[in-house]
């Protein structure tokens, strides 16, 4: 019976891995939005997907090549941080084309390309779960410290240099968090669904509640709820998880115009 499929041990690892990633990605997405770097999630995830496909083609563990590609992308971004979204746009163009070309010209690459771009949560293994658990524990352990520093940097950009306080620690830690979130997201739920998870929850959460911590909490709530709905629906209705997650997140994004509509009606 289909309702018991959800309790099948086969689905436990993908379910818990995806839930951890939904929480972390929607949380990190809030910080990317605050820094006006939300497009970086898609740029780095596309490059990471290309790296993962290259790993499959070369017979090297795809997580390693995905991490290598994502680190390289993050490094290039940091060489000239002022270029902002134009760098991320170039990453998307390069990453997508490289992933597709590599996939088209290698035997296993075609399957891998499809997996990493579209997402195949059900085929992940315990290694992904361990990575996701480490990521969520690490994120929760440092988020308070990191949040304060990133906000100070946003509103008082030279506070750290003015007071001889090293800023490389929080910058590197945030870059590491973004890279590992993107890579784990890409190899677990796919490049585009990961981007949707980074982007949509804070895009909605930031306008429907007041307060930084509350808006982050609501973003995580939206991300996890969308994930749960998608996972259950995909399993029970035998639908592809990645595209379904993006569709559900799109439906959640409708909260935003509805919120504005209700607010305007209330005002009048």
């Amino acid at each position: 019976m289909k309702e018991f499929i959800l309790f099948d041990p086969l689905f436990r690892v993908p379910f818990i891995t995806g839930l951890c990633l939904a929480a972390v990605l929607s949380l990190i997405g809030g910080f990317l939005k605050m820094r006006d770097e939300w497009l970086s999630a898609l740029g780095i995830s596309q490059v990471s997907a290309a790296g993962a496909v290259a790993g499959v083609a070369l017979g090297v563990p795809s997580v390693l090549t995905a991490v290598g590609a994502a680190v390289a992308a993050a490094f290039i971004k940091d060489i000239n941080p002022k270029s902002g979204n134009s760098h991320y746009a170039m990453m998307i163009i390069f990453g997508w084309s490289a992933a597709i070309m590599l996939a088209a010209n290698t035997h296993h690459g075609e399957v891998a390309g499809e997996t990493f771009l579209r997402g195949q949560l059900y085929f992940i293994h315990e290694g992904h779960l361990v990575g996701a658990i480490i990521l969520i524990i690490f994120t929760l352990a440092i988020i308070k410290w990191l949040s304060r520093r990133l906000l100070i940097e946003r509103f008082f950009p030279d506070y750290f240099s003015a007071n001889n306080i090293p800023s490389f620690s929080h910058r590197i830690i945030f870059a590491v968090l973004v890279v590992f979130s993107v890579v784990l997201g890409t190899v677990s739920i796919g490049a585009f669904p990961s981007f949707a998870m980074f982007f949509v929850p804070p895009w909605v959460g930031f306008v429907i509640v007041e307060g930084w911590k509350k808006s982050l909490a609501v973003s995580v709530l939206i991300g996890c709820t969308a994930y749960l709905i998608s996972f259950v629906t995909a399993v029970l209705a035998d639908q592809p998880f990645g595209p379904l997650l993006m569709l559900v997140l799109f439906l959640f994004s409708m909260i935003r115009p509805l919120f504005y509509l209700v607010k305007n009606v209330w005002k009048t």
Partner: peptide
């Protein structure tokens, strides 16, 4: 030192409260 920049950019969609900015 704290430095108030000329024409600080107002982030368009940030729900951070004035109180939270003060506490930073």
């Amino acid at each position: 030192i704290t430095h108030h920049w000329q024409r600080p950019e107002l982030p368009p969609e940030l729900a951070l409260l004035g109180r939270e900015l003060f506490s930073l």
